[in-house]
């Protein structure tokens, strides 16, 4: 988790609050090395943007492994547990019915549905958990206002260091990004 935003606020000449500094890069390699520099400078509230996932980027950005797989395992266990409970209760307890002389509540025929419902809930957790962990759906984001940022879905790469970062300083942060061979740098308002 990123540390909470500091109380100090930066504004531009027009008095709008600053969201952060945005730097643009031409290739994945440039972005990758720039990320390593930003990581080593100790920033926490920052992000990089690329049209596709870049191999080893977790390391270059110093990200922690996501806890999402644990949530998905939990979803799967919940689905399988509910399925077992449902079947044992309906078929063994609530209304036992004699079928072909089979036992009312034997676990073997309950395996397929337990498996299917376990997968079902785990998959729901995977999709909706991914969105929730990413704080999506999100209707508005300051970066989306920038015309140049829309190219991040095409062939351009970006880093944005947010003004809420404890180490953020308009001058120093900009200088750091300038040293990473960007093709452009600009200030982004909230």
């Amino acid at each position: 988790m990123a540390p909470p935003s500091r109380s100090r606020r930066y504004v531009n000449e027009a008095g709008d609050r600053i969201h952060g500094v945005l730097a643009q890069y031409a290739t994945p390699a440039d972005l990758f090395h720039a990320c390593e520099k930003v990581r080593d400078a100790g920033y926490a509230r920052w992000d990089s943007f690329s049209p596709f996932p870049i191999h080893d980027m977790e390391e270059a950005m110093g990200m922690k492994r996501t806890k999402l797989p644990l949530a998905i395992a939990g979803g799967g266990a919940l689905g399988a547990g509910l399925a077992l409970l449902m079947q044992f209760w309906m078929s063994g307890s609530d209304y036992p019915l004699m079928k072909q002389g089979k036992p009312f509540a034997s676990w073997e025929p309950f395996v397929p549905i337990t498996f299917e419902l376990g997968i079902l809930l785990a998959s729901f957790t995977a999709l909706f958990g991914m969105l929730a962990f990413n704080a999506l759906p999100r209707h508005y984001h300051p970066l989306m206002k920038r015309q140049r940022f829309l190219a991040s879905s095409d062939d351009t790469f970006f880093i944005c260091i947010e003004a809420g970062d404890p180490r953020f300083d308009p001058e120093q942060t900009r200088r750091l990004l300038e040293s990473t061979h960007p093709t452009a740098i600009e200030l982004v308002e909230e």
Partner: peptide
């Protein structure tokens, strides 16, 4: 928005 933190979880 093509964030690499998002891509990681994705």
């Amino acid at each position: 928005r093509f964030s690499n933190r998002h891509w990681h979880r994705y």
